[in-house]
């Protein structure tokens, strides 16, 4: 089972919800947590995994063998991103424009192009104290494209789950999505089975919720909503959810003591244990909807 926690608008509490959901789920499932916000990965600050491995990831960029190259210009012609240019007797490669598609390598009549990894970020993995298998993608500063990191991150499979005493547990994957509603969010949702939207009851929250809900509809994914900071704004989210037939699965009112605890790096269920039951209930409702 694969659940994505998304929001559209940033700062509505995606990580707050996804980390608490993971902690509660770890009591009954074999949980794999993927922090897919490669530009601003924060879940590790709350789940405290012991990050044991780090792997560089990137895209394959072309390198031209100047001896074999005849400067025919085919590579530059097929490159849609103008990452390779042939002018006179010179071939120029611009790694930061390259999408790593391999088209130039395939087209070169002299087989003069080989490929090498251009690193754009890393994937860290480790176990949390609760036994959650944790992985995060971290994009290097100055890089533009995080999606290749996401693709690799989603392929990650924990080598060995911690030996638990009881019967084998059902696997459950939770993906913490980036904000926005463009390509990285799409890549995060691809292959998921449920999307949990975390929003806040303000015009910004609603506007951006509509954007991500449109992506989930395109993937035909079942979805539900968590309203965070319930009570600070208006009831336009409730109206929207009723019209769209989106179930509101949990409401989290704004409480100063909770805001303080979250700010310091505690998870919601640790800071306010009364939420443990609510999150168990949330998880059950999600699982019921996935199985429906």
């Amino acid at each position: 089972m694969r659940i994505v926690v998304a929001s559209g608008k940033g700062g509505t509490g995606k990580t707050t919800v996804s980390t608490s959901l993971a902690q509660v789920a770890a009591e009954a499932y074999s949980v794999r947590f993927l922090d897919c916000d490669v530009e601003a990965p924060n879940a590790a600050l709350f789940l405290h995994p012991a990050l044991a491995t780090q792997r560089e990831v990137g895209i394959l960029v072309p390198r031209v063998d100047t001896q074999a190259c005849t400067h025919c210009g085919k590579c530059a012609e097929v490159c849609q991103f103008h990452a390779i240019a042939v002018v006179g007797q010179t071939v120029l490669v611009f790694d930061d424009l390259c999408h790593g598609c391999g088209s130039c390598t395939l087209i070169c009549p002299e087989q003069a192009i080989s490929e090498q990894l251009s690193v754009i970020g890393v994937i860290d993995t480790g176990l949390t104290p609760e036994g959650i298998a944790f992985a995060q993608g971290v994009m290097n500063v100055g890089q533009a494209m995080g999606v290749p990191i996401l693709r690799e991150l989603k392929k990650w499979t924990p080598e060995a789950m911690p030996a638990t005493c009881d019967a084998p547990r059902q696997p459950l994957e939770i993906r913490d999505a980036p904000p926005g509603a463009s390509c990285p969010v799409v890549e995060t949702m691809r292959g998921a089975e449920f999307v949990l939207f975390v929003t806040e009851p303000t015009p910004f929250g609603l506007h951006d919720l509509k954007q991500v809900a449109a992506i989930a509809r395109e993937f035909d994914l079942p979805a539900g909503v968590v309203i965070n900071r319930d009570g600070i704004g208006d009831d336009a989210i409730d109206t929207y959810c009723a019209v769209q037939n989106l179930p509101i699965l949990l409401r989290i009112p704004l409480e100063r003591r909770i805001a303080e605890a979250l700010a310091s790096g505690q998870t919601l269920v640790d800071a306010a244990p009364e939420y443990r039951t609510l999150f168990k209930d949330l998880l059950e409702r999600i699982v019921a909807r996935m199985n429906a």
Partner: peptide, 28 residues
């Protein structure tokens, strides 16, 4: 935009001054 990727780079390159709005949380 939020983040540090392609739209942020497009928004910041060539600007004269950036004001970063943050919040006092570990994530911020």
């Amino acid at each position: 935009p939020p983040g540090i990727g392609c739209p942020v780079i497009a928004a910041v390159s060539g600007a004269d001054l950036a004001l970063l709005v943050t919040e006092p949380t570990v994530a911020g």
